[in-house]
């Protein structure tokens, strides 16, 4: 059942989930061994794949991989939105917004993969689970989009302080305000209310947006991500 040599070897899976599964099957690793194996991971900056779990890594790279994971989730979501019946029958304004958001999130995702890969190891493609979303339903799509955009804003807001390298903070800043622009637009078309873009659900009495820790964010995102994510190496 177990292959002890796996404990000390880092396996970076390729981007094809099916071949990853094939590899995992071949390696004979089962879910039961997951916890045990993860405790054997070395503590360094690189993300690690152990059986079907993804370790974000530690330090700034871990934080960037965390952002990369969220961008993957958003990009995968909007890619499916554009294939659904709701999008096909949406208003011109809604189509423009969703088309733009798909492009922006894909641009973010591709950028993170390239930028992280140039200095360390980027996490592989995550497997997502959108079975709870009805891509033919306007309500389902926009509610989910709103959740993801607000979540993204809160994630970047909470992650800024975890970064050590100022250049990384600047990039996170460049992206988070676009996520906030998205969130406002999606909220606006979703509810039609003139105050939905920044109402008290997301802005408190001090005029501050939501900030969440990686643990809080990943807990909420986990409903949509099949691949287990180990964020234990992230800075606190």
């Amino acid at each position: 059942m177990q292959t002890p040599k796996f404990l000390s070897s880092r396996v970076v899976a390729d981007r094809d989930p099916s071949s990853r599964r094939r590899f995992l099957r071949t390696s004979g690793l089962g879910l039961a061994a997951a916890g045990l194996l993860l405790t054997g991971c070395e503590d360094d900056d690189d993300p690690v794949i152990m059986n079907n779990s993804v370790n974000l890594g530690s330090g700034d790279v871990g934080v960037l991989n965390y952002a990369f994971a969220l961008e993957q989730l958003e990009a995968a979501f909007y890619a499916q939105v554009l294939q659904g019946d709701y999008y096909a029958s949406a208003t011109a304004e809604e189509k423009q917004i969703l088309l733009d958001l798909e492009a922006h999130e894909r641009a973010h995702m591709d950028f993170f993969e390239a930028a992280i890969s140039s200095v360390a190891t980027a996490i592989p493609a995550l497997e997502v689970d959108f079975s709870s979303i009805d891509f033919n339903s306007r309500t389902s799509v926009l509610n989910t989009a709103q959740t993801f955009e607000d979540l993204g804003v809160s994630a970047y807001n909470g992650a800024g302080r975890l970064l050590q390298n100022p250049d990384f903070l600047v990039v996170a800043g460049k992206i988070v305000s676009v996520e906030a622009r998205h969130a406002a637009a999606i909220r606006s078309i979703n509810s039609g209310s003139p105050t939905a873009f920044a109402n008290s659900e997301v802005v408190d009495a001090n005029g501050l947006d939501v900030s969440r820790t990686p643990a809080q964010v990943l807990s909420m995102a986990s409903a949509f991500i099949i691949t287990p994510i180990d964020a234990s190496g992230l800075p606190q």
Partner: peptide
């Protein structure tokens, strides 16, 4: 400061869209 920053971005998006611009 980041929490204020993203609120300003929400404002910007809404004002831009009221004016007929994209939010970005």
């Amino acid at each position: 400061a980041l929490q204020i920053h993203s609120v300003e971005a929400r404002h910007a998006s809404e004002i831009r869209r009221i004016r007929g611009s994209k939010g970005w």
